[in-house]
């Protein structure tokens, strides 16, 4: 029997990001950074899918995607 563990992680649409940094401020794992003042990026090895960034992003462009 195989057990598949589903977990979530944040996914950002870089073209729509305004690089305001709001998400950085709320991430408890320090998983987010701004790439050269242009857009936010997620370090998936640190993201625990808590969704705090998605709740706070003023542009509403962070989605939580399910990964196996």
């Amino acid at each position: 029997m195989t057990v598949s563990v589903k977990r979530r992680r944040a996914k950002i649409l870089p073209q729509q990001c305004v690089a305001c940094g709001t998400c950085l401020d709320v991430c408890p794992r320090g998983a987010l950074s701004i790439f050269h003042g242009s857009f936010a990026q997620v370090d998936i090895t640190r993201c625990v899918g808590c969704g705090l960034c998605a709740r706070e992003c003023p542009a509403g462009i962070i989605k939580l995607e399910v990964i196996e």
């Binding site: 709001t22 706070e56 003023p58």
Partner: peptide, 13 residues
């Protein structure tokens, strides 16, 4: 809107 909604269209940003 959300707390920092202004930042999405702030001219300086």
């Amino acid at each position: 809107y959300r707390p920092r909604a202004w930042c999405t269209f702030c001219p300086m940003g």
